[in-house]
Design a protein around this nucleic acid. Structure first.
Lengths: 149, 149
DNA sequence: TTCGTTGCAAACGCTTTGCAGCATG
DNA sequence: CATGCTGCAAAGCGTTTGCAACGAA
């Protein structure tokens, strides 16, 4: 079993929570999926494996994973909240055309966090970085469309 | 009149929109308020000045201001979306205790944007940076509480 | 056997929409 | 005076909640 799933099991047991197939399935899906799905997308994707599962279970499991610090939440103002199986500090780039979200590692981020803490006087506990734009594929499709005119 | 309000008027007129007291009031409030209010907070704050104004007008005006690029939107997953009268690239620091949000200027951000564009291949159009933590006041209150025990 | 978890459905809160009357340009 | 805007109420949608039945430990 992948190490992240083992960690999840361990944390659940340690804190008196129970290990259920739905919980493992939801976390596994989040780890596998790179496009940062919404609760609805997770629910749809797991319908085959868990035909009886309700949306409430998805939401409750996501809350639990957030509480355990295993996932991150991306609030997109208006639209449905999306979830990121990678809780480490990184940058999310969001394509306004295809609505996919990708992760980008940025080695400068820890320095930025320090600087923000210094300037603001805050005790920094977490951070989120989002860029909006057009992904390479969508951009290529756009240029192609331009060409043919 | 402050330059931002003049810009707003100009943009409205240029694009065939109309200048109304409600619109000016909402934008002015966003410029004055440093805590990044939600639509509800804006509505409550302007109730005195515009007793007849509806929430719908607040939402429609916020959409318009976003479209004109005069304000920014902060999606906070679950909670109500909040609005920032400063559309320029900056960092938001969010206090998880008092829920206030402050702006921090960071001169390194343009460099970060370049780096992200290079790594991801995206055409970057916008960005948002959020830090979570405890603000100096709340932290002081916490320490004080610790002391007295 | 215990008690945390699930699935269901109803409730909830934020946001959007349709429309008649109003006010701006 | 034309048409874009407002206020109102209802609808929409994502998310949360209460509860009885279920299943993990």
């Amino acid at each position: 079993m992948r190490p992240e799933l083992e960690t999840f099991q361990r944390l659940l047991t340690e804190r008196g929570y129970r290990v259920t197939p739905q919980r493992m399935g939801i976390y596994e899906y989040l780890l596998d999926t790179k496009t940062h799905p919404s609760a609805e997308e997770i629910y749809q994707a797991l319908k085959d494996r868990f035909p009886m599962m309700s949306q409430a279970t998805v939401y409750k499991t996501l809350d639990l994973l957030l509480e355990l610090g295993l996932i991150a939440q991306l609030g997109l103002g208006g639209q449905a909240t999306r979830y990121d199986g990678n809780p480490d500090v990184h940058v999310n780039v969001y394509c306004s055309e295809c609505h996919r979200i990708y992760d980008v590692m940025e080695p400068e981020l820890p320095k930025l966090a320090e600087s923000v803490a210094r300037r603001s006087g805050f005790v920094v506990k977490g951070q989120r970085h989002e860029f909006y734009g057009i992904c390479p594929e969508c951009e290529a499709r756009r240029s192609a469309r331009m060409q043919e005119r």
